[in-house]
Structures are given as C-alpha cells and as structure tokens.
Write a protein that binds this DNA or RNA. Sequence first.
RNA 1: GGGGGGAUGUCCGAGUGGUUAAAGGAGACGGGCUGUAAACCCGUUGGCAUUGCCUACGCAGGUUCGAAUCCUGCUCCCCCCA
Length: 395
Amino acid sequence: MSLWEDLVWRGLVQDRSQGLGASALAAPITLYAGYDPTAPSLHAGNLQLIITMRRFRDAGHRVIALAGGGTGLIGDPSGKNAERALHDEATIEAWATRIEAQIRRLLGDDAIYENNRSWLEPLTAIDLLRDVGKHFPMGYMLAKESVKTRVHGEGMTFTEFAYMLLQAYDYAQLYERHECRLQIGGSDQWGNITAGVEFLKRTQRHGAYGMTTPLLLRADGQKFGKSEEGAIWLDPERTSPYAFFQFFLNTADDQVGTLLRRLTLLSRDEIEELEAAPPESRTAQRALAEHLVGIVHGDEGLREAREQTEALFGGRGEAEAVPVARDALSSWPAVFVAAGLVSSLSEARRLIKGGGLYAGEERVTEATPLPELGADDVLLLRKGKRERRAVRPET
RNA sequence: GGGGGGAUGUCCGAGUGGUUAAAGGAGACGGGCUGUAAACCCGUUGGCAUUGCCUACGCAGGUUCGAAUCCUGCUCCCCCCA
C-alpha cells in the first residue's frame, strides 16, 4: 500500500490541494508542518500531526518541523473565536525549545528543525508589505473562514489578520531553502496553508501543495486530549506515563478504531484484527495505550506505566506511593487531598458522602477508622473506579 | 472624535435593591448498570468548618439596614457613525 493510500485509509486526509495524491508522492519530496509554541509542552491532541509527519518520513520523504518562534509572537486566529493573549519573547523561545525536543524524540534527528524567527525577525515592514502583501487581494483575505467568523463575531485586530501573510512567507522561505513542496496541518490550518500555496503560485514558484488532517474529536464532539485533570501532556513531568497510558486505556469503544488508525504506526492488518476483538476484552484499548506510551515515552516509560497499572489495578507489584506528611493522616479528607486525588477537603467530604472514595477495596464512610500506618506501609486509595493512587507516610 | 451595547461561577447564559453561593444548559465528578466502555437513571459541582463563617458576579470607591442589581471613577471588549 502506498503512503497516500494508507493516509486515505486511515482517514487522515481532510483537504488537499489540486494534484496532490499518490503520483505527487511517488518520488521523495520535502514537506513541513509548523507549530506555534503557545504552551510549554505538546499534548495528546498534537500527536496526530506529528505521527503523520512520521508516516511521511518513514515512507522516505523529508520532513521539516517549523517552530513558530516568530509567528508565536503574533498569534494565529485560526480556530479561535477570541483574540489571543500574547506571550513575551523569552517565554515563546523557551517553549519552542522544549517542544522541539519533544518532536525530536518522535521524528528523530534526520528531520529538519527550523524556527521562523530566523527569517521573520529580519523581515522589515516594508519587505512584508511590498513583497508579500502585494500578492494578497483584500477580497481573498476577507473570504477566509477564520477571518469571516471573527469579523462577524468577537472582532479581530490587524495583527491576527496579518497572520496568514507570515505563514505564507514561511512556506516561501522553506520552498527556497529546502525545496519544500508540501505543507500539512490540522484542518483549522487550511486557510493559512492555501494562502501559502496561493502566494507561491502568484510569485511563479510552482508545484507546491497543501494538505490537512481532520480535527481529532471525541465521539461526543468535544475537543480531544483533555481529561478531568486538564490536557494530557506529552511531557512526563506534567502527565506521567502511567496517566498517559490510563487516558488511552479508557478510550470509548466507538473511538478506539479511529485512534488506532490515526495515531498509531500499526499496520492495517494489525488494526483490523484489533478492531475485530470483542470490545469487552479491551484488547484494542490496551494495544492503543501501549503503542502510544511506547512511542512517546519509550520502553522505560512503557514499563513504568504497565507496572503502575498492574500495582494499582491488579494488586500486584509495588505501586509508586506518594509520601504524605504524618499530620495529613489525621482525617480521611486530608489523606485524599494529600494524595492528590481530590482538590479540596470539601470535595473529599462530598465524595465520602456520595460513596465515591475507597481505601483499598473498602468504601470510606464517616465511620471508617483511619489505619495506623507503619513506616513501610502503603495505603491504596481510590476515587471512583478509574483513579487510584498509593500513599505512604512521609519519613 | 461622536453615539450605543457589554463584562456573572469551568464554559454558555438568566438575574436589574432583599430567603442569590447566584435560574437554566453544557461540561466535569461520584453512585447505579457494566468491561477501568457507550447509552441511560440518580446525585454532586467556591473554600473552610460536624448546620456557622469566609470569599465571589471586570477593577476601585460610594449610597443603603441590605447591592450581581443604584451612583462615581477606571480598565477591557463589541457595534454603528465620522
């Protein structure tokens, strides 16, 4: 199966410019995807695009990961219904560095890493207006979906309006520097991507394509990659390999096939076999979770995630216990707060009243006595069915 | 420059002097049913405290026995005209 056929089968092609297809990808080409450093880490929702780049790379194409060190200072209006808050340069640079390191782990060192700050910073206002802006008729820009929705809604400043010029300029720079011929991105990037393709065409630089992948949504249409705790980050400091594993293990049945196709590097045969497994066995969820933890956190992370899952849910092996100060062991609510399972004593009290907290397999009630913990004892706590954590007295 | 509208809890959104920790919806969380699914039903959803207190309706003051609701100033946003 060719790369293109594979992408189509996986449901990864949402929009594409004319002429992009199997034949355009027959010979190796150079492509890029950009990311704006608007957070200190990538999250699960960013995975689809990076894995898609990985597919291109594995098929022999050359991929460029472009950090938006410059554009991140402006703020992309796409997919947003309100003006973005601007961060300062130092923050953006620091985030860009961290994110690049994360992408390197997923794409390897043979990918090309660029930062558009290196050409946007020296770009003068005159250059931008003469060399780029001249090729953008107002009607064309105003017709963009990202502009229309904002102009008729919350409003938009010139800063964000001009964003598409910068992204088009990026594409042109990469076209010149690396003979980049394809830009890929999430479907909210389609407007910016076509602006780039259009700009190249108008400046006599031919053979440039664009493609987008569909937005990854949960079955109920909500944004993907968020849990009760907030986003599922790729940074193990923010979201442990165990929590990352649990997030994917809890994938709904009707979504697991989609995620296997879009996010994993498993083959079509492997995926179809997993989809055929009885849903109650959760084989597909387990395979998904293990595969992704492996890709993102490596063998070591996968081992940790498995061990913790086994210890907390299977009752075997040793769970990593959160050390809790002695005086927090004075009441059940305090213990659960210290363990990080609930955010306040009030919440803990409410949950106890509702029967949602457990110590070991015992439901905690107001009458449940607190156990006497020796220095080496570990107490298994549980909130509901899915969240578990072990604690031990602080020494 | 002129005129008008707006800022409410995680989000959307009611509320225009009193029983409002603030309707309703969404989301989230818990319980039940299950498979650490989905759907569905029930409950909870500011904090601290064993029925009381504190904090909260853009910010800062003021009026009042009492304000999210009235007044003043400020900040930010939107729309229209120039």
